[in-house]
């Protein structure tokens, strides 16, 4: 009788162990692993475009062929974003009504820090983009927030990006389940098809970089945030990351979300993280 019980116990234990052994690979596959993601992401693009140097990717469509690269070199001689950088510099230095400035809201007085945004703020429990941080700074000092898509916000971020040029993107994901969840949600948003055209961000920027959609050459997703904000000839003006995301949604015939909604901040977090190590090239110019 005792022997039978022992056998049954042994049998159950063996079954439980086998179940655990079978379950663990699936569990490992679902684990959120930003380091592995970034490695795979970079490898995909480096393999797809073996002639490009890693730092070339931050020039978007201008990195995709020689003719476009020549256009970029010429554009950089009289860059269309220059006015925005100048305007942003003046705005950045101008005190608020209470006498404080933007510099008081940021580490290192706001100079050369663009590569650290977006960041995860554990007090607010959410991803904070540079655009959101700037408006939080304004509101904390009794000023009205700016539009997230263009104008003053584009100029301010242009100037801040300019002070970070060449610095490697350096996004941190703290060991905080909320930060990991935000990163994962950003990834999900990036790959999810939406809009009547059934496009995801990845449809254009992973599956088809270098290809044309009508007259536009699609940029690779790798390094796409490093050039923000951008002057787009199509817009005939500067635009922020928010503007780019909103217009991407509209182009797939989806109703855009509100700028700086969770989804947009999280996808910026994801895309910036996987480009860690690539230089900031913003502000950029695009066709």
């Amino acid at each position: 009788m005792m022997k039978q019980r022992s056998l049954i116990r042994f049998g159950f234990s063996a079954l439980a162990l086998a179940a655990l052994a079978l379950a663990s690979p699936a569990g490992a596959a679902d684990k959120i692993d930003p380091v592995a993601d970034a490695k795979a992401f970079k490898k995909f693009f480096y393999d797809k475009f073996p002639k490009l140097k890693p730092e070339d990717f931050v020039n978007g469509p201008y990195s995709m062929d020689e003719g476009l690269h020549k256009q970029w070199v010429e554009k950089e001689q009289f860059p269309p974003y220059e006015f925005a950088v100048e305007e942003g510099k003046e705005m950045f230095a101008k005190p608020f009504k209470n006498g404080k400035t933007y510099a008081d809201c940021f580490p290192n007085q706001g100079i050369g820090i663009r590569q650290n945004y977006p960041l995860f703020d554990d007090k607010q429990g959410k991803v904070i983009t540079l655009e959101l941080a700037l408006n939080q700074c304004r509101e904390a000092n009794g000023e009205a927030p700016y539009s997230y898509v263009r104008g003053e916000m584009a100029s301010l971020t242009a100037y801040m990006a300019f002070t970070s040029r060449g610095k490697p993107m350096d996004i941190k994901i703290p060991d905080d389940p909320r930060a990991l969840a935000a990163y994962e949600q950003g990834k999900e948003y990036f790959y999810t098809r939406r809009g009547q055209l059934n496009f995801s961000c990845a449809t254009c920027h992973v599956q088809s970089p270098g290809e044309r959609v009508r007259t536009e050459v699609l940029a690779p997703a790798l390094g796409i945030m490093n050039a923000m904000p951008i002057y787009r000839s199509e817009w005939n003006s500067m635009g922020t990351t928010s503007r780019r995301l909103v217009t991407c949604n509209s182009q797939t015939r989806g109703v855009p979300l509100t700028p700086q909604d969770d989804e947009y901040r999280n996808v910026e977090y994801y895309l910036s993280y996987v480009a860690n190590g690539l230089p900031i090239s913003g502000p950029g110019a695009r066709p």
Binding site: V255, L257, E263
Partner: peptide
């Protein structure tokens, strides 16, 4: 579901 379409509107 955060996925309205423009043609629906």
């Amino acid at each position: 579901l955060r996925n309205q379409w423009i043609p629906t509107a």
